[in-house]
Amino acid sequence: MREKILQIIEKNSRVGVDEIAIRLGEDEIAVANEIKAMEDEGIICGYHTLIDWEKTNIETVSALIEVTVTPQRGQGFDKVAERIYNYPEVNAVYLISGGYDLLINLEGKTLKEVAKFVSDKLSTMDSVLSTATHFVLKKYKDHGTIIQPADDREKIMP
C-alpha cells in the first residue's frame, strides 16, 4: 500500500485521504495512518508546489553551480555541504561522482544576488577550491512535469 500511496501523492499531494482510499480499495483510516507513519519516518519530507515562475511577473534566476572542495578530515564532504545547504537560497545540494564534488541548485531573485552568493559566500569558504556557475535559460521539465506542454497535438475521436 505504501508504494501506491506514494505514487499517487508524488504526482499530486493535494489528493485527499478519502480519494486515495477509494482509488486503492483500502480503508480510509488505514491510509491516513500510513501517511502519518511515513511523515513520522521522514519518508514523506514535505508537500511542495511546482511553480513556473516564468509565467509570473516576479523575477527569478536559477543557477547550477559545480563546486570542487577539499574533504575535511573526519567529516568528508558532509561538513562543507552543510555550510552550503544552510543558506536558504540554496535549493538543492548533491554530492556528485566525476569531475567535481558538489552540485548546487540556487534560486535567486536576480543575477546579481547569485553572483554575490558565489563570490562572497561560496568561493571564500576554506575548503572550496573552485566553482563554475551555470545559469538556467529555460526549464523544459521539472519534477517529472513538462513545463510547457505541447498542446498542438490533436485528439481524434473514433
Binding site: 501506491k4 499517487i8 480519494e19 477509494i22 482509488r23 486503492l24 480499495g25
Partner: peptide
C-alpha cells in the same frame, strides 16, 4: 494500475 484506481473511484 491507473485504470484500476479510476475503476474503483
Amino acid at each position: 494500475e491507473s485504470y484500476n484506481q479510476r475503476r474503483r473511484y
